[in-house]
């Protein structure tokens, strides 16, 4: 099985091969370095002139990518760490998304890729999940494939389908993970939206109804193979639902699974309060009021700085154990 990183590299390779509009930009992305997380390794050698290594000027290079997108290119911009997206916010919110929506007949097919997430000891300013800050931005799509999806396929889907800006969020800890497929215990299905994006539906049982629906996205998928297997041993039937498009969320796809399970846990790695999980919970309550057996439980990381020290970092970040505890708490409601 290929890794998340390999599939993503392959997706970019295919795009560069087939679509002359594609230009890759970012800091340190050319060979021999090939990007801080090696996503673009080899590409500048294979596609001379198509990758542009940029100065360390996140706001400026985002604007440059916007300009390219306005004039017929499909720029794929790498922001080295997702934490630096704060610097790009003005170009994303007040420029890219506005051009495609306030001007007549203008498209701005800008793709910004960026790794988020903790767990590697990078400390307070290199470990966050700041996609949270961009949630709800009009005319912006936020896509974050898990390792039950294929990020290489997804990035190609974006190029084919989108004419407006997209934030493509990769969790750092997924790069080395293998893509997950079904095994004896875990059954994976990919449900396609009309736009062709996938929601991964993962069950740890074969017959009967689920005891609980776990909704999450992106990097938290790394916990699921073991967590769902362990829970299967305890005969806890879980249906995990992971959309790759996290905003606007495919709520109509999520609702039937939540309704069938009647008990819901929503997990995300970002900090507590006012995040994705809370937003999804709000939408589910609106659709499923009185159809649930108990309140929806939200699991996140702590609302505090993400420490560098290993033990301290573990304490604040979301974990398999915290998700499991939330599942047990929800199942214990009478």
């Amino acid at each position: 099985m290929p890794t998340y990183l390999k599939e993503l590299q392959q997706g970019l390779f295919t795009l560069l091969t087939n679509d002359q509009r594609i230009i890759l930009l970012g800091e340190d992305i050319i060979d021999p370095y090939g990007g801080a997380f090696k996503v673009t390794a080899g590409l500048s050698t294979q596609f001379p002139g198509r990758l542009i290594t940029t100065p360390i000027a996140e706001a400026g290079i985002t604007g440059v990518a916007v300009g390219l997108a306005l004039r017929g290119y499909v720029p794929i911009l790498e922001i080295m760490f997702g934490d630096f997206l704060t610097l790009c916010a003005d170009q994303i919110i007040n420029h890219a998304t506005k051009f495609s929506s306030m001007y007549s007949a203008v498209s701005c097919p800008l793709i910004i890729r960026s790794p988020m997430g903790g767990g590697r000891g990078y400390g307070p300013t290199h470990s966050q999940s700041l996609e949270k800050l961009f949630l709800g931005t009009p005319h912006l799509k936020i896509i974050s494939p898990s390792n039950f999806h294929n990020p290489g396929r997804t990035i190609q889907q974006i190029v084919q389908y989108e004419s407006n800006p997209v934030l493509f969020i990769e969790h750092k800890l997924l790069y080395s993970e293998f893509l997950q497929v079904s095994n004896e215990i875990i059954h994976v299905n990919l449900q396609s939206s009309e736009e062709g994006y996938h929601t991964a539906i993962i069950k740890n049982y074969t017959v009967g109804n689920p005891d609980l629906c776990l909704i999450s996205y992106g990097g938290t998928s790394r916990f699921l193979p073991k967590l769902l297997t362990d829970l299967a041993v305890e005969e806890v039937r879980i249906i995990a639902v992971l959309p790759e498009v996290i905003d606007p969320a495919p709520i109509d796809i999520l609702v039937p699974y939540a309704a069938a399970a009647r008990r819901v846990v929503i997990a995300e790695e970002s900090t507590a309060d006012f995040g994705w999980a809370v937003g999804i919970a709000g939408m589910l309550y609106e659709k499923l009021w009185k159809q649930l057996d108990c309140p929806i439980k939200v699991v996140t990381s702590e609302r505090c700085v993400i420490p560098t020290a290993s033990e301290q970092e573990k304490e604040v970040l979301i974990s398999a154990l915290k998700i499991e505890n939330a599942i047990m708490e929800v199942l214990s409601w009478l």
Binding site: G63, V64, G67, L70, R71
Partner: peptide, 30 residues
């Protein structure tokens, strides 16, 4: 916030300069 053909304006001071730089890059690449 005006646009026709090759004209683009926006209300954020300075924000159009990198965009124009990207447009210049597009001109050059083409």
């Amino acid at each position: 916030h005006l646009h026709v053909t090759n004209f683009y304006s926006n209300g954020i001071l300075g924000g159009m300069v990198p965009v124009a730089t990207g447009i210049a890059l597009a001109h050059k690449l083409k």
